[in-house]
Design a binder for these strands. Sequence first.
DNA 1: AATTACTAAACAAACGTTTAATTAATTTTT
DNA 2: AAAAATTAATTAAACGTTTGTTTAGTAATT
Lengths: 209, 209
Amino acid sequence: MEITGKQLAIMETAEQLFADNGYDGTSIRDIAHQADVNVAMISYYFGSKEKLLQAIFEKRTELWRVHLESMIEDKSRSPMEKMFVLIDNYMQKIFDQSCFHRIMAQQQMANQDSPVASLILDTKRRNQDLVKKLVQQGQRSGDFKKNIDVPLLMMTMMGTINQLITTQHHYRELNNLQDLDDTEYKKHIKKKLSTHLKSIFKAILSNEE
Amino acid sequence: MEITGKQLAIMETAEQLFADNGYDGTSIRDIAHQADVNVAMISYYFGSKEKLLQAIFEKRTELWRVHLESMIEDKSRSPMEKMFVLIDNYMQKIFDQSCFHRIMAQQQMANQDSPVASLILDTKRRNQDLVKKLVQQGQRSGDFKKNIDVPLLMMTMMGTINQLITTQHHYRELNNLQDLDDTEYKKHIKKKLSTHLKSIFKAILSNEE
DNA sequence: AATTACTAAACAAACGTTTAATTAATTTTT
DNA sequence: AAAAATTAATTAAACGTTTGTTTAGTAATT
């Protein structure tokens, strides 16, 4: 099924509204109005509200996987370098798709099983396996320590970035950065966060005494 | 206003349902049914659905503040020890009130200003100020490094714990820990997380080369 | 006797979805 | 290439539920 302009407009509008007001806090009429389409078009194109959410998830999770796999198998970088690339890639992805990421955060918080819930779990499982592979590479080459808790490491990376993305508006106010414009602010916080995470990873992973 | 048994039942039920299904995903009738009270009682006692949420927030944020303040002024502990106590206290609090914490997470994710939104922001600002104070103590005594980004440090602590709490059910499955019973599992993960966070904090804060 | 706690029923508004009718685009037939 | 037939896109209105809240009346407590 090819995606027309109108379908894309619906999906993008829905993404923003779901992120800001939650899935249940957003009505079909809200979306239709903001995307400037008739209410019936959403059922017509996607079938239902939930299937619209699914469509958004499928579109967003499509490309991410392949990217990660090839990066890990890259022979030209050291394990620690790869880990740093991973951090920057993950950050970039989430900054670029912050609305979608916020939807994902609220969906995985909900304690109910839905089509998207299992989609999220699958993605996470795959990602964790890949990172585990990368950690093992580093351990074999002697670059990394022996006892690494991969799930906890992932939790720190994802959790820290997540915390920043989900509470951006708070962070800015808490640190008196309102005078910076949006792009300036984003650049600033990205640089800071990247350095921060890398130093944490180095401290946890690195074998130097 | 004193809280009767029935009001408490409503608040506790609401807390769990809000956490599991989201605020908008939970209806007044859901709460009334599960708490075994008449639908009208919720409006009668709390005024509205939103005021019920506010009541839950006020009850939960009441005691936390005083506790933190006295802990930081404690002269018998070193700055690093205090930081470790802070980590354990924060973890304990969130584990004990995981439902409430999940509600808070979804509320601070929403990009809209509500009574609870400003309540959250206030609490965060206060907490961050207190931690900043503690960091300065450590810097004056020479225990901590000079350049510490307090907001980022907080983000890592809260983010990591948050990530664990909001995705507990995932974590358990991802690490094949289903055979452990609930209390056993909680004990296990708490111990792990505590060590993990402390080693991160030590790496970031400590002045030893 | 008067206030408080509680209930079942009703309220209007909003919800996601469907229907039936109309317009636009595409394909088939002349 | 023009006309007719067919399919797809779009609309306004209506559907039946569910939503949060209120009302008017009853039972319990003070």
